[in-house]
């Protein structure tokens, strides 16, 4: 875990409301699924840092993708190259790639794609067959889909308005896909990041086909470093585990999906 002040190299709107930011950052090794905590400005509003998944962190350059929706991310979108931001990271655990993994199925919606990018890089490097069901309201929500294809990932786009790929819900298309191809419960696995309701559905569908699911949970975080106990996820056994430290990636069966998160 490092704490550093980081120069913004670029902060570009790559699609309506979606921003890709590159920061100058000391070299660090990180794992797919890990995140950083970023202070979006140097005032007390917003007070807290924002968690951002690591899209990439190589050659002293840290990349993130975010959607400007609320106070923190809208503020972040105003930062210009040359300005500096305070960063802490890498934080949290990571997606696990089990030995002998057959086919990796990734399901995401919108900005949830970010932590799946380094995972896709690791999977394709190991020559593991990887499919991405990529959902969004419209074609502009499927950001960086070409980067996934370039890695050799089979991308299946799904949009609510039918502007790209199949029209409808990404989870419905995932289920149709599973019905047709019959994944192998012994060797295949599901990886997901996105809205809570989507991930829950993904976990349920994967379960029907006997597949395990690794989910990256999005919770409110105050510190990101394990000391506030604000970010916890309720486990099936009733205990609360810190998403910033023991998470954000969990196996779907560990989680009490009925617990309120937001």
């Amino acid at each position: 875990m490092l704490q550093f002040s980081s120069l913004i190299l670029s902060n570009d709107e790559i699609a309506p409301h979606y921003f890709h930011m590159v920061l100058k950052a000391p070299i660090s090794s990180y794992l797919p699924g890990q995140f950083v905590m970023i202070k979006v400005n140097n005032t007390n509003i917003p007070l807290l840092r924002r968690a951002m998944a690591i899209l990439s962190w190589r050659d002293e350059e840290l990349e993130i993708v975010y959607k400007a929706i609320g106070l923190g991310t809208k503020e972040l979108s105003k930062r210009a190259p040359g300005e500096k931001l305070e960063v802490i990271g890498p934080l949290g655990n990571s997606y696990e790639i089990p030995d002998g993994l057959g086919h990796a199925y990734m399901i995401t919606g919108g900005v949830g794609m970010s932590p799946l990018m380094p995972l896709a890089r690791a999977l394709t490097k190991k020559r593991i067959k990887t499919t991405l069901f990529f959902g969004g309201a419209s074609v502009t929500d499927l950001v960086m889909r070409h980067e996934f294809s370039d890695l050799g990932v089979m991308v299946i786009p799904v949009t609510m308005d039918g502007s790209l790929g199949k029209r409808g819900l990404v989870t419905d298309v995932m289920e149709e896909g599973f019905k047709a191809t019959k994944p192998d419960p012994q060797n295949d696995m599901v990886f997901t990041c996105g809205p809570h309701a989507m991930m829950r559905k993904v976990y349920e569908i994967a379960g029907k086909y006997g597949l395990k699911t690794q989910v990256s949970m999005e919770t409110r975080m105050a510190c990101g470093t394990g000391v506030c106990l604000g970010c916890v996820i309720k486990n099936k056994n009733g205990s609360y585990l810190r998403a910033c430290t023991e998470g954000p990636v969990y196996y779907g069966e560990e989680i009490d999906w009925n617990a309120r998160l937001d």
């Binding site: 105050a222 106990l229 609360y240």
Partner: peptide, 22 residues
């Protein structure tokens, strides 16, 4: 075990928590 989630909410220049002494 502490309180149910969500346990924190941000406010202008403040943080409200209900960790419940986990």
């Amino acid at each position: 075990a502490g309180n149910p989630t969500p346990r924190i909410i941000e406010t202008s220049a403040g943080l409200i928590n209900s960790i419940g002494l986990q």
